[in-house]
């Protein structure tokens, strides 16, 4: 959060380059900043925007640690005194938090891995066989799915997953992968263009098969884009509400957001309990994000969609 990670990030950006120099350019920002003293008005705008984010988060955290009596005293901004974890205990038991959290973790992890693997494989096959009709048409076919949002197919989807015995987190994972795939393939194919084919040709001359070339050479080179695709898949899957709520038939196997929405009515006026439960739902993703934000930002900005 301080400036130090930024400096480290710059160092990494400068050293970590792809084998060929031309695929990388200096970040434009490095130049633009020259002689541009940060103006006061700019800082104020940035700070105001940050405040709109920080205030609700602060209120959530402080409410969660209050006792029930404090939570309803009408002063949302006051610090909790004394600190109380009663809210967490009640919310934990009421929502059966560990189960919902576990389901969410499994679904999200499956989605991230599945999206990256399926997307990278398909994109590699497409981009290296672009001169063949079959692969070219497959590309447009895969992209076409982007224009079919989940709500359009929701109803038959419920019957289909029920029929296949997939009305559970496994089915939700598969569907999450499917609805991430188009976007991921778009990102991967764009990135594969920047990887020179000379590299692969030399690997081929050394006798590597297509699979070996992919796993040993291409997949590692795709890492920044895999990070981007993985982050998008993580966000979409972890935060999704509609798909699990409609697809999963057994309420005990619901993901965290769905459980949150089911139990919201039961908290009634126990603000400390409801905010503790919101915080428990938010915290894992936020903590993971705070620790990985350097790679998140780097991954996303490096794996840019090149025009």
């Amino acid at each position: 959060m301080s400036t130090q990670p930024a400096l480290i990030a710059e160092g990494i950006e400068a050293t970590a380059t792809l084998e060929d120099g031309k695929a990388r350019r200096r970040p434009a920002s490095a130049v633009r900043s020259r002689g541009n003293k940060p103006s006061m008005s700019l800082m104020i705008v940035l700070l105001l925007c940050a405040i709109t984010v920080v205030v609700p988060l602060y209120v959530t955290v402080s409410m969660a640690f209050k006792t029930q009596a404090q939570a309803v005293d009408g002063n949302a901004f006051s610090l909790p005194a004394p600190f109380s974890v009663d809210g967490f205990v009640t919310a934990w038991n009421l929502t059966n938090f560990p189960a919902a959290f576990g389901v969410s973790v499994v679904v999200t992890a499956g989605t991230v891995i599945g999206t990256v693997l399926l997307g990278a494989l398909a994109s590699y096959a497409i981009s290296r066989n672009w001169d063949r009709k079959l692969f070219r048409y497959s590309f447009f076919y895969l992209l076409a799915a982007m224009f079919i949002p989940f709500p359009v197919v929701a109803l038959p989807q419920i019957q289909l997953t029920g029929l296949l015995g997939l009305d559970n987190p496994v089915g939700v994972t598969i569907l999450h992968i499917m609805f991430q795939l188009s976007f991921s393939i778009l990102l991967f194919t764009a990135f594969l263009r920047s990887i020179p084919s000379e590299l692969e040709e030399s690997a081929r001359l050394d006798g590597a098969t297509t699979w070996q070339t992919f796993w040993r050479l291409i997949f590692p080179l795709l890492a920044p884009m895999s990070a981007t695709v993985g982050i998008f898949a993580f966000l979409a899957s972890w935060n999704d509400f509609m798909m699990p709520s409609l697809i999963t038939s057994n309420p005990a196997l619901q993901t965290l957001p769905v459980v949150q929405s089911i139990f919201q009515t039961q908290f009634s006026n126990n603000y400390n309990v409801s905010f503790a439960s919101y915080l428990m739902a938010m915290a894992p993703a936020i903590i993971v994000y705070l620790f990985t934000q350097r790679w998140v930002m780097e991954g996303v900005t490096q794996g840019a969609v090149k025009g």
Partner: peptide, 29 residues
Amino acid sequence: LVNKKVRGTTFFRTVYFLPVVTSMVVVSL
């Protein structure tokens, strides 16, 4: 704005992204 090398850029990028990692259900509640 955030792309300019202003002091605390990393802080602002991080903060602005926080609502995104929070699920829409929790944000709505």
